[in-house]
Structure formats: C-alpha cells, structure tokens
Amino acid sequence: MPKQYGMVIDLQRCVGCGACALACKTENNTQSAGKGQTFNWADYIYKEEGKFPKLSYTAIPVLCNHCTDAPCVKACPVQPKSMFKTADGITMHNDERCIGCRRCQKACPYSATDVAREKAAYSVISVNDGVSEPHQMYRDGGELIKGCTASGAETAKAAGDIPPSRHDYSHPDYASVRNKGIAEKCIFCEHRVKKGELPNCVVACPAKARIFGDLNDSGSEPAQLLKKHKAMRLKQEKGTKPNVAYIRAFKGINKA
C-alpha cells in the first residue's frame, strides 16, 4: 500500500503555546502577515465555549490537512498542476508552475483569500501578491523605533540575506523563500521527511501533541492512536477526507 502521511494532534496534550507555529516560521522562512494573508503554514486558533464562569477554552492547532480528496488540487488550473498530491499523500506545491491565481485558496475549505475581509480565523494557504517582493519588512528602510533600532533593510544587509535569519534548504518543488506572485502552504516539511526527519512543528512541540507518520502503516504511532481514540477532523462535511486528525478533544471542535 502506498504511504499516506498524516498527523494526529492530541488536544489534551496541546497546551496552546504556539511553539509549532513559530517552529514552522523559522524552518520555512515564512513572512509576517499582511494584505489579508497570514503566511502561517502552521497556525492555531482558540475556541471559547459556554458563558462565564462556565467557560471552556480550547487551543486548536491548524495546518494544511493534506486532504485525500483535495479541492485545492482539483481547482489548480495549470498543467502539470502546481498543487498536486505526491505518491506519499502529501498535498505538494510546485513554485515554478504556480501563477498565483488563488483558485486553490478559494477552493480550500480551510483557507480564505483575505482573512480580514472574510473574517476568517486562519488560512492554510497564503498567496504572495504579484506586485511587491515578499518579506517587505526586510526591504524597508524605515526604523522600527525611530532613532533607536536598525531598519529591516539594514539588518538584512548586515546578515547578507532576506530574511536575515534565513534557513536554507533545497527541494525540487519549493524554495526555502518564495517568490512574489505565487501561493504557499504547509508541505509537511518534505525536505526533512525525505531525510528521515520529522516536520519541524512536530519536533518543536514541547507537549508531544503532534504525532506524524504513515497513516496507512497500521503499526505507525499515528495509526495506532487513531485506532485507540475516536478522531475528529475539521469540516468533515466538506468531504475532503483530511489527513490531519484531532484526538481527545474536550468538546465541540468540529465547529472550528
């Protein structure tokens, strides 16, 4: 059987610290949010339920669900598709072929073309506009605190790279820093997985709440957990067959 990489997130372990989101940002050099785009391949939302004082508060980490029936892939208009499924079940993005049309973003039930306008809590796909170079913060000569700090451009110049803390890697489909005019999203850190390492968010989670592996291998840790616990998946009614599953929910996350 071919592999199906996936992730199980144990909500009772998750402490909502956001280490996964930060680890993803440093691994993949994602830029800061702007123009309705979050650029958070790994993100987290908080779900509040009930009324004070009977209030429940749940942190839910979100990322691309690497759906088996991925609407983003269906929507992608280029040939060969820029958004496609790998043999290992990862929803992969090829930078070179992407035209930045946002059809994937529109089709994905977990994404918004503009989080502010659509009042969305998160968006797993972000799109770099075709006008300005990404990482504007490091191209800008303005000082963060006037007369006090260095400007982003100065920092980048001193470090000799944009972003200054760039973590370099290479992958045939995606670049470690994306160009303008294309979409980007979680690719399950395939550049790491291919080397036998885990996605960086998994490594970074101090509570070991993120469990990654081949869901088709019944002996794998995530497969075992799915056997043991009843799992929730986001927006199951959309029929996308997500490969990110949540276990040991407190309650109600299905509405997230």
Partner: peptide
C-alpha cells in the same frame, strides 16, 4: 475583482492597481 486574470495573463497586460 478576484485578480485571477492578472495571474493568468502571460504577457503582463493586466495588472492589479488596487486589489
């Protein structure tokens, strides 16, 4: 105003001035 045509045009004849 989805700006999809701006993306698909191979020649750069369509441009986003205001999203």
């Amino acid at each position: 105003v989805c700006q999809g045509c701006v993306a698909i045009c191979p020649a750069g004849a369509l441009q986003t001035a205001d999203p």
